[in-house]
Amino acid sequence: MYRRTSILDGIALPALQARPAAMQQAYLDLTTGGKIQVASYTQGDGARTVTYTQANIADLTQAILAVQTQIDRLTGAQCINRRAPLRPLF
């Protein structure tokens, strides 16, 4: 049995890879000008449209991170900013 670990499980990799650029542009537009941004996407059960405003920029940030994380999971990408383990010196 497959255990889902992300709300984005089941979305094809090419569809996921197309989203971050538009979402990041919406983020930049919101943070620099405060204008409303609309993001549309299609899932298996139909099309969705989400409107982001300055008030819910944190939601947009989390959505961007979720998509990027899912892409990393599907492509096997590793985080390059990891610290080496700490080792005690005696």
Rank of each mutant, 00 (worst) to 15 (best):
Q70K: 05
I64W: 02
T53E: 14
D29R: 06
P85C: 06
R48G: 13
Q70Y: 12
T53H: 09
Y41R: 05
L8F: 07
R83E: 00
R73Y: 11
Q37H: 04
P20M: 01
R87K: 07
P14C: 10
L13H: 13
T32F: 06
N56G: 06
P14D: 08
L60T: 01
V67S: 02
G44I: 13
L30H: 01
T61N: 09
M23T: 03
R87M: 14
F90I: 03
T75F: 05
L8D: 02
D9H: 10
R3Y: 13
K35Q: 12
I36V: 12
I7N: 10
T32V: 14
P20R: 00
T53G: 14
A15K: 06
I57D: 02
A26E: 01
R3P: 08
G46F: 05
A77Q: 09
Y41T: 02
Q62R: 02
A15P: 12
T51W: 10
T32K: 01
Q62C: 13
L16M: 04
A21V: 00
T61Q: 11
D72Q: 00
D59W: 11
V50W: 02
C79N: 05
Y52W: 14
Q17Y: 04
N56Q: 07
R4D: 15
A77N: 05
R19D: 14
R19V: 15
I36M: 08
Q37R: 08
